[in-house]
Design a protein around this nucleic acid. Structure first.
Lengths: 120, 120
DNA sequence: ATAGTTGTTAGAGTTTACTCTAAGTCAAAT
DNA sequence: ATTTGACTTAGAGTAAACTCTAACAACTAT
């Protein structure tokens, strides 16, 4: 059980951002008697998952959509699967692009090094 | 030799964007007698390179910096090399992150499929 | 002649994802 | 008693990278 400030610290986000995600229906923590947000281990895991999706360029709107489907329950399993499969494809494309550019950079870097060392 | 609209079409960007990049000192095309922008093959290659950098998350400010160094000439070779090497590292980190998340997604996708097919 | 393309300056508008402020309440800790 | 941390609503501000508009000039093609 974590307070908002603890979660912020653990996941390196601001409390502002956590409240913002809540407003965007991405994480809805529990509340204690004083109406303070209480995040469980499972909220934390969900947030970590969300951050992975964000890191890999999934827009907030799509993350919200996944969260919404999740809340709707079992009948959305197929839709969630499709969403994740689409994101997997997006990730694969990103990796391809990065690899291509990395190769290009490697050549350029090599050329620069040759130039600096040997003035060919 | 390409007019702005041809470049826009070839590279799938708007003429607005091309003028914006020019204002940001990222590409400065030649001009003809009528002061119209004229892009050579080499401008096109530079633009393609720029788009690769953008695709791999290099901010405009850094691309501008690289372009500036380029214009300054040979004495900035070392600086340009360092900039590209830093970006290469950034690319490698991005690839690592993507691979990690892809593996995670693959597991989740598998779990969803199992659930759907066998209701385990 | 007129439609189309390009040019200019200057600035306004858009989108995404935060990020922060105000202004006030409430409960726990020192 | 007061500081601290949390809460609320409502909205303003920020940064990046476009994206578009206005309003008018100038050349090219039909």
């Amino acid at each position: 059980m974590y307070a908002i400030s603890e979660v912020a610290k653990l996941l390196s986000v601001s409390t502002h951002t956590l409240r913002y995600y809540e407003k965007e229906d991405i994480i809805i923590p529990n509340r204690n008697e004083n109406k303070e947000r209480v995040y469980t281990e499972s909220h934390l895991n969900w947030l970590k998952f969300v951050m992975k999706l964000k890191e890999t360029q999934m827009p907030i709107a799509q993350i919200r959509e996944y969260a919404r489907l999740f809340k709707e329950g079992e009948q959305t399993t197929q839709a969630r699967l499709e969403l994740l499969e689409n994101h997997q494809i997006s990730i694969q494309i990103q990796i391809e692009n990065l690899l291509t550019t990395e190769k290009m950079l490697e050549d350029k870097i090599k050329a620069y090094k040759d130039f600096i060392n040997n003035k060919i």
